[in-house]
């Protein structure tokens, strides 16, 4: 999209040693992210979440991450010290997960959590942090920020919790946001509103985003570019607007198996998986 990419990933591999041998969750994935919305689509077990997590080295133990290159603005992330990574995590690369309930501290008011998140990454005083937190709550379209500021996570609805989570992740003004199914738990209308917020932030601040989802339609309508993952590999990548013309049989199969309002056929074509997809090059 622009001059140099924010994130470069080359031949990323994530593997988990188990009793039965090593399970490879991600098997050689390469991509770059600029100031754009990159969608990663796949079914469960495709390795899409692990790809997102491995960027911040958040793969749960005993997973092992390896890559030829994993760099954020030219800086190597794989070899970075934990201290350096903490400085990048949250401040420059933020991550939003599916369920806000697990990501918010239950015994701290949401306002304080957002203000804390701001203060950790800047020199602002408490008053300044509070002002910024309130602004941020407003930015994610929370109607009465003053009131919500003093609430605890269990006192807000799922949709509001997710918006609060997004506010908290975005207040340090990260350059890259990794969003893993950020709206799957939300109702469709709320989902659209939350996506509009993310869309604005990408457009206005030039933030880059990796949007991980199982929902083909949503990704196609929301993102700029799409990677389709299957069994730990990228089987196809295309511009979001051209997803309908995708050529890989897996992508075609996924698209065909979706029931559609504008298509009155009853029997849905069932995806037959070709073992050759597991071994073909991908990139």
């Amino acid at each position: 999209m622009s001059d140099s990419p924010l994130l470069e990933v080359s031949n990323l591999r994530v593997s988990f040693p188990t009793r039965q041998g090593v399970t490879e969750a991600v098997r050689g994935v390469s991509f770059t992210v600029g100031r754009e919305k990159l969608g990663i689509v796949g079914e469960s077990g495709s390795g899409k979440s692990m790809t997102g997590r491995s960027v911040l080295r958040l793969v749960p133990a005993p997973g092992v991450v390896g890559a030829d290159r994993l760099a954020f603005r030219g800086e190597d992330l794989l070899g970075a010290s934990d201290k350096r990574l903490r400085a990048i995590r949250g401040r420059r690369i933020a991550m939003v997960m599916q369920d806000p309930k697990f990501s918010l501290n239950p015994v701290m008011t949401v306002g304080r959590q957002i203000a804390e998140a701001y203060r950790v990454h800047s020199d602002a005083g408490p008053a300044e942090a509070r002002r910024r937190a309130l602004e941020m709550l407003e930015a994610v379209r929370i109607r009465d920020p003053e009131r919500v500021y003093g609430r605890y996570p269990h006192e807000v609805s799922g949709g509001m919790g997710q918006r609060i989570m997004i506010a908290m992740m975005l207040i340090p003004e990260p350059e890259l946001l990794i969003a893993d199914e950020p709206t799957s738990a939300l109702d469709v209308t709320v989902q659209m509103q939350v996506l509009a917020i993310l869309d604005d932030l990408c457009g206005r601040r030039g933030m880059g985003m990796i949007f991980i989802s199982h929902d083909l339609n949503l990704v196609a309508s929301f993102c700029d570019r799409i990677l389709i993952m299957y069994a730990g590999r990228v089987v196809e990548s295309c511009r979001a607007s051209e997803l309908r013309n995708a050529t890989h049989p897996y992508t075609r199969g996924l698209l065909d198996s979706l029931p559609r309002l504008d298509d009155p056929r009853a029997e849905l074509p069932v995806l037959t998986r070709d073992p050759a997809w597991l071994t073909e090059g991908g990139q």
């Binding site: 469709v188 659209m192 509009a196 339609n217 196609a220 309508s221 929301f222 309002l261």
Partner: peptide, 18 residues
């Protein structure tokens, strides 16, 4: 109608009108 519109994929203008 709003539900129908929301289920049709992301649309910036539609989201605004909800």
């Amino acid at each position: 109608r709003q539900l129908l519109r929301a289920s049709q994929g992301y649309d910036r203008a539609a989201a605004e009108s909800f």
